[in-house]
């Protein structure tokens, strides 16, 4: 690697390490390596919280996901060295003790599976070598953990259900996916909060309103670490839930 990406800064410990690399002239990425998925995720989110709390001038945004944390900044108002130093300092502090996630809440999400609500259910069942009923059963069998919030806005990106293998993306993405659509891809699951384009196969749709107030801070009722439990309902039960807020569905 040359000077564009050459600054690698790692601290090896028995429990893996956080590697920090430049990502363009306005970004730095911290990546958790050499640890299991759960610890990597806890590490980058705890690091995101700790970094956020520093309120470093010039920082525009942070994106913690599964095993990496992107920090974007204005390189006229701060610099790579400062951002890397703060990340290193906070990562080392985290490395000294156990990283515990915040208390998780559990959201219960009614879903109408298949048909016009989940047009890709037959294709996904085919690809997995399962019946549609088995796909639905697996999707609603366990609490799924939210790992990060993604595009287009506040989308809860979860660990996927215990399918036998990853689910391929659609060869041709949809121009418009309806809000509340419940989708899977790879080993991930998501609810689409807003009408938007999407390339993930759709299994069903929830009548709940996922985002309550677009101007709320934080934007979402849920946060990474919370869990979602999908519950199959019939199309006739749609109206019993329509317009209710996901925010009040936990318990």
């Amino acid at each position: 690697m040359d000077s564009g990406t050459g600054v690698v800064d790692g601290a090896d410990t028995a429990r893996g390490s956080v590697v920090i690399v430049d990502c363009g002239d306005s970004g730095v990425v911290a990546k958790a390596v050499g640890m299991d998925a759960e610890r990597a995720w806890r590490t980058v989110h705890a690091l995101a919280d700790a970094f956020d709390a520093v309120r470093l001038a010039g920082v525009h945004g942070i994106v913690p996901t599964y095993d990496s944390l992107l920090v974007e900044f204005d390189c006229a108002d701060t610099d790579h060295d400062t951002v890397r130093r703060v990340l290193r300092h906070e990562a080392d502090r985290l490395g000294e003790g156990p990283v515990t996630p915040p208390a998780a809440r559990r959201f219960v999400v009614p879903v109408v599976y298949g048909g016009e609500f989940g047009p890709d259910l037959p294709v996904v069942a085919d690809q997995l070598g399962l019946s549609e009923r088995e796909v639905v059963e697996l999707h609603s069998a366990a609490d799924l953990t939210v790992r990060c919030l993604g595009a287009p806005a506040g989308a809860p990106m979860m660990d996927g259900p215990a399918f036998p293998r990853p689910v391929p993306r659609l060869s041709s993405p949809r121009i418009r996916v309806l809000p509340g659509s419940v989708a899977v891809a790879g080993r991930q699951a998501v609810i689409c909060p807003m009408p938007s384009p999407g390339g993930w196969p759709l299994l069903g749709r929830t009548p709940l309103r996922v985002l309550e107030d677009l101007d709320a801070d934080p934007l979402t009722a849920y946060r990474p670490g919370d869990t979602f439990r999908f519950v199959p309902i019939t199309p006739e039960q749609w109206d019993d839930h329509a317009g209710r807020s996901l925010a009040v569905s936990h318990g």
């Binding site: 995101a48 956020d52 525009h60 945004g61 942070i62 994106v63 913690p64 974007e72 919030l149 993604g150 595009a151 287009p152 806005a153 506040g154 989308a155 934080p218 934007l219 979402t220």
Partner: peptide, 11 residues
């Protein structure tokens, strides 16, 4: 829209 990318909002 700065500082909201953690919630999935583009800038």
């Amino acid at each position: 829209r700065f500082g909201r990318s953690r919630y999935g909002l583009p800038v």
